[in-house]
Design a protein around this nucleic acid. Structure first.
Lengths: 262, 262
DNA sequence: AGACATTAATATGTAAGACAAATGAAAATT
DNA sequence: AATTTTCATTTGTCTTACATATTAATGTCT
């Protein structure tokens, strides 16, 4: 496990990669203790701060954990589904916002993936998951609910559907797709009538799942996708009209430089 | 943007989180330059090495990039699909191996997701993607091919299918599912007869895609999944027999500790 | 002898200061 | 005007030091 002093990359990046490779290849196994920072510094012939930077890179990916004290050190971390979820959600969300992915593309991906879960969920959904869906549907029909809370409830319901497939890998892979839609959905204003329609579709979905009727689950998801996209389009066109009305000669967006919260 | 000196977490983790939040919330926008390390150290009232550890954490997630020199510094990085792919593949692979996910569960997830791409791919596949699939099918029918190369070709073919859906978000989400199967697939020994069968199914898949026949695409994927699982099962049972034959009184599996490839 | 407090050792966490190297901009020179 | 030189800025790295957490060993008292 060595580094190349001629490489253009930082030492800390190279060291991190070397350790990462050792973990991925199985050279370092879960819960195994890495050499102390001082020893690693010796081995790689760099200073301790440089080693620390490398270790922090790995910690950021949840590949290692550190512990202070006499028997402490850096240990290979067992990557858990929950941690992986969080990373996936953050990455997916940023990916969508930074590459200005359209609502349609994201929506298509999300529903294509959810429909993949449909047949499995119809087969395996637990009473618990059905109860979660019913509870969220009930919440969604409350009149005083904010748009944001409505969206959050929507995400919870859809995650229950995904979890219904009873496949942790599937749940993990879809976490990003479902959650990353959240910010995009938040731009929609849900009128009372549109909420009514969505609640009706959600109810149909829950009913079909309860009846283990895969075909209806799939059909309902198709309708839900189509209606969601319809809603988003009406928002976009409405906003476009408003913009040209309010500020027809607005400057082209170059550097907003908005104030940062302290 | 402050940190809590009473928190149990490291300063560097807190600072990283604060900056991460600023990026996710849109407070810091793409290509915006962060204050220099010295300024950040002042702002957060910590030393420069601590700030650097925080920045390296963010760099490990591709959230920032750094540049040396007079006009250098740390900049908010535009997260690209390609970088996100890689991270997803690493994370997914480790997730599967560290949580000893069964072949069946991973395989089910993979094919459920690929079938989600089927209808879209049947509609949108480009001549280029079809050509890639044909080329890989040809490679797979070469007699001298190692099992590892056969697997790698399989992955390429399946990625072409996924990309055929013409949805970058979908391609990104599925990268992990497809690639993470690679190590598991590598445990299978592909006999000449099984390769023949797989090549036939791959050909049927390519034909159906070319004919834009979504139903056949779906059916072929179902058959491919069933055959893959069948293959894996035969390998598992064969291995089990061999083990009991070689070492009938072996201890119950607690810590396999099998030989690791260098 | 056993329970408890003290001490020591080891590790990570943090700080401070210094120098090297890269890089772009300004200044000086041709 | 074009080119070269100088210089200021910023990250990358090293060294040393101390703070703090944690465990193990030691010692003391009952």
């Amino acid at each position: 496990m060595k580094i190349d002093p001629d490489s253009t990359a930082d030492f800390s990046a190279q060291i991190a990669q070397a350790i990462r490779d050792a973990i991925v290849s199985g050279d370092l196994i879960v819960d195994q203790r890495l050499p102390s920072e001082a020893e690693l510094a010796d081995q790689f012939a760099v200073s301790r701060p440089t080693v620390r930077e490398a270790l922090k890179r790995l910690a950021a990916q949840s590949l290692i954990r550190t512990q202070r004290g006499a028997t402490g050190g850096a240990f290979v971390n067992r990557l858990r589904f929950e941690e992986a979820y969080d990373q996936q959600v953050t990455t997916s969300t940023l990916l969508l916002s930074m590459n200005s992915v359209s609502f349609d593309v994201a929506c298509e991906a999300r529903y294509a993936l959810e429909r993949a879960c449909g047949p499995l969920a119809a087969q395996r959904r637990t009473p618990d998951q059905l109860a979660t869906m019913r509870a969220e549907i009930h919440r969604q029909s409350q009149p005083g609910l904010t748009d944001e809370a409505f969206c959050a409830s929507d995400v919870t319901l859809h995650r229950a559907l995904v979890d219904g497939a009873g496949n942790k890998v599937l749940s993990y892979q879809l976490a990003g797709a479902v959650e990353a839609m959240h910010p995009l959905m938040n731009m929609i204003t849900f009128t009372a009538r549109s909420r009514e329609r969505i609640v009706a579709l959600h109810t149909a979905l829950a009913d079909a799942l309860e009846a283990q009727d895969a075909a209806t689950v799939d059909q309902t998801l198709v309708e839900l996708e189509s209606y969601t996209r319809e809603l988003a389009h009406s928002v976009v066109t409405a906003r476009a009209h408003q913009k040209t009305k309010n500020d027809p000669n607005r400057r082209k967006r170059t550097e907003p430089k908005e104030s940062r919260s302290a």
